[in-house]
Amino acid sequence: MRLNGLSLFSNVGIAEAYLKDVGIDIVLANEIDDKRARFYQEVYSDAHMICGDVTDTMVRDEIVKEAKEKNVDFIIATPPCQGMSEAGLRLEFDPRNKLIFYAVDVIKRVKPKFVLLENVPKQLTTKIKYNGDVILIPEYIKKELGEDYRFNKETLVMAKDYGVPQLRERNIFLLVKKELNYIWEFPEKQKEITLEEAIGNLPSLDPLLREGIDETLKRFPEYEEKKKIGLQISKWHYPPKHSWKQVEWMMHTPTGKSAIYNEVYYPQKADGTPVKAHHNNYRRLKWNMPCRTVTQNNGVISSLACVHPGRKYVSENGEVLYSDPRVLSIYELMIVMSLPLNWNIPEWADETFIRRVFGEGIPSKLVKEIVGELTRQL
């Protein structure tokens, strides 16, 4: 038995990468951003992408009408989380937090058998204004949908527990129409996959320096050879670009540590003043655990724990250094996002855009395992 699905706030469809494998055919999707919508449509040519603002009544009416025509029985909705995210400003009553209203409206009108509603854990304690009252988002969802749907008991889930080499905690509501005889809970946890297991066998890459190729080759004589070997693995395993000063700081930063704790080569301004930073900025990842949560700024060394773990080595002048003073390559990100390695990223998509949409995506295998737990019963 296969189900027709609708994806709301679909981004570029990272969550949907394996849904066909577990019996869900996404036939309709909605995304506000033109570039993301175009990316989605190129990857999922079988789905009809409605590009538009779901808060617009006419757009929402079009989504509902087409969902009914296409017999949609499954909805996955992933409203943007920046208003609640630990990495964001978290303003009280951030307007983005109200996007859940529009997802709920579509669900109530389409009446699918099953719904997957995903967001950050902070959603559980985020307040919104509703009918003149201030209530928590989960309370609102259950008031609106609890009459027709059963909810899962545990809603917090870690991607690392389901074959994804990334921590990434999420809050996911799983809804089943009350008249149906199915129980939808999270599946049994799986063994954690460390970064060593996930990307440890990939060829090392030297970064491309912003100062130019001549400076790059002067600092990294093996740059071109390493790049060539990397591209033999995948066209997406190519060197990220960084400034020399940041690269030098990271060359002196051990695996799992932050450069802010270095005695000499620490993040500093031109006059030598230390840069004020969080203890997870300028931090190398650890080999012996899954990747930290991938964020939108995963291409920036100074961002949250996004630098390659590296390997210790001794330079010609006897200095202890660490290889791969760079962020993860796009290919390595595909692995830690658990995307299929042949996932068809459009040629026109630039690196900054790809990194941003990855940072906002739900790991593909997490969704596959959770939805598979349901469709096996069907």
Rank of each mutant, 00 (worst) to 15 (best):
C51T: 11
C51A: 12
C51K: 13
C51H: 08
G52H: 04
G52T: 04
D53M: 03
V54A: 13
V54F: 12
T55E: 07
T55Q: 10
D56M: 03
D56R: 09
T57R: 10
M58S: 15
M58N: 13
M58Q: 14
V59W: 03
D61C: 01
D61M: 09
D61T: 13
E62S: 11
I63T: 03
V64I: 15
V64Q: 05
E66W: 14
E66I: 13
E66L: 14
E66R: 15
A67W: 10
A67Y: 06
A67M: 12
E69I: 12
E69R: 12
K70S: 08
V72T: 12
V72L: 04
F74M: 01
I75M: 03
I76G: 01
A77R: 04
A77G: 11
T78C: 13
T78E: 03
T78F: 06
P80R: 10
C81R: 02
C81A: 02
Q82N: 02
Q82S: 11
Q82W: 03
G83Y: 02
G83L: 03
S85E: 09
S85V: 02
L89E: 10
L89W: 00
L89Y: 10
L89R: 11
E92N: 13
E92P: 07
F93E: 06
R96E: 08
R96G: 06
N97K: 05
K98C: 07
K98V: 09
K98H: 14
L99A: 09
L99T: 13
I100N: 02
I100K: 07
I100V: 15
F101Y: 15
Y102T: 11
A103N: 10
A103P: 05
A103E: 07
A103G: 15
A103W: 06
V104E: 01
D105F: 05
V106A: 02
V106D: 02
I107A: 12
I107V: 10
K108C: 02
K108Q: 11
R109K: 15
R109A: 13
R109I: 04
V110L: 07
K111S: 10
P112K: 06
P112D: 06
F114N: 03
V115I: 14
V115P: 00
L116M: 14
L117M: 08
E118A: 00
E118W: 01
E118V: 06
N119A: 04
V120C: 12
V120M: 08
V120D: 11
P121T: 04
K122C: 00
L124F: 00
L124Y: 01
L124P: 03
T126S: 08
T126V: 09
K127V: 14
K129F: 06
K129V: 11
K129W: 03
Y130C: 05
Y130R: 03
Y130V: 09
Y130N: 13
N131P: 01
G132F: 02
G132I: 10
D133N: 14
